[in-house]
Design a protein around this nucleic acid. Structure first.
Lengths: 188, 188
DNA sequence: TTCAATATAGACAGATCTGTCTACATTACG
DNA sequence: CGTAATGTAGACAGATCTGTCTATATTGAA
């Protein structure tokens, strides 16, 4: 499960270090709860370096979400493939994520909830992320005339499971409800 | 649709005025994006009055969520009844909400995303809210041995629809995906 | 070696934040 | 009427925030 800390190897430069640190802190505590000084201190860069790479905090937020999207999508596609690449792969794939100790829901849902009222870019970025997620779901569903509609419904149910798993002490209820929805949609 | 502005009549006192103002601002812009001075100015109270009723901002946040819960649940139960009180009431009920111009998703999902990493009370409050919402959903489902499980799955799908409706320019896709899930779960 | 690009540490400025407090006014109840 | 409770306006303090800047060091390429 390597969404959280990116590559196993050492980040290659200041920009990458900033991005990774911001990613970890923003996801864990929230964007507004994390000041730029903290990102700077924990990534070991100077303030001038920070602002050279990210002219404002909002720029960093946008970059954070792009970074998160790239990593999360790579993980999701890989996890679906590892679990067999069919509809039955969906629940075990998200289960890996939900059981991660650092799990705190979806960075896009969280960011829209936190910032959507004041930084509308975030909504557009999240929408695009969800479209790509839905496309990845469609790719593991059986071909049929309903495939696109089923993918929309399954992706929506995954979002519901993400939220419920974030609230509950254990992800079990969310996982079994998601399983139930997928089974009934695909009539398996 | 009266979640947003509470009663039609004038709030009865300073505390109510503060709560209603905080509700509107927190929901629209986010909690951390809204300073206490703004709540104070817009509710027309003095600072001492504000802090007498809410000893800290975190107390206000907790009160905001309790206030939101009471009003949202009252609306939800009423909307389900107005649309016939059966499973077919679910989609038209949430549609009323999604099409409200002030719609910005679920206050509980947003608050957990924003504050869940730093104010854990919020998660507990949100969990309780979702339990009550699930119970209201169960009450409109047909009696059967699957009712509790179906209610969990439907409630989870509603959360997914809430998120998608928040991201998309129109709630149409979320509403039809939700309809599809409910129909397939209940085999209608 | 030279020079441009990139890095370091951290001081600084102004804005915004949460919470404390003074002085005075109004309301409600016995 | 007197008093307690509740209200008003807003100054104040200290912390935290985002972003600008100086002085110096390091790195990489020609």
């Amino acid at each position: 499960m390597d969404i959280q800390n990116g590559q196993a190897d050492v980040p290659s430069g200041a920009r990458e270090r900033i991005l990774q640190t911001a990613h970890d802190l923003f996801y864990r505590d929230g964007v507004r709860a994390t000041g730029v000084d903290r990102v700077i201190a924990e990534s070991g860069v100077a303030k001038v370096t920070f602002y050279r790479h990210f002219p404002s905090k909002n720029d960093l937020v946008r970059a954070y979400l792009a970074y998160r999207h790239a990593r999360w999508m790579a993980w999701f596609i890989d996890a679906l493939a590892r679990h067999g690449g069919g509809p039955d792969a969906i629940v075990p794939a998200v289960e890996e994520w939900f059981r991660d100790a650092r799990y705190r829901g979806c960075a896009f849902i969280n960011s829209v909830g936190e910032l959507g009222g004041v930084l509308p870019d975030v909504i557009e970025i999240a929408r695009s992320h969800k479209q790509d997620m839905t496309a990845a779901v469609a790719a593991v569903l059986p071909r049929s005339r309903q495939r696109a509609k089923n993918a929309q419904a399954v992706a929506l149910a995954i979002d519901g499971a993400i939220v419920r798993a974030q609230f509950d002490a254990s992800p079990d209820a969310a996982l079994s409800a998601l399983e139930r929805i997928i089974q009934s949609l695909l009539k398996v």
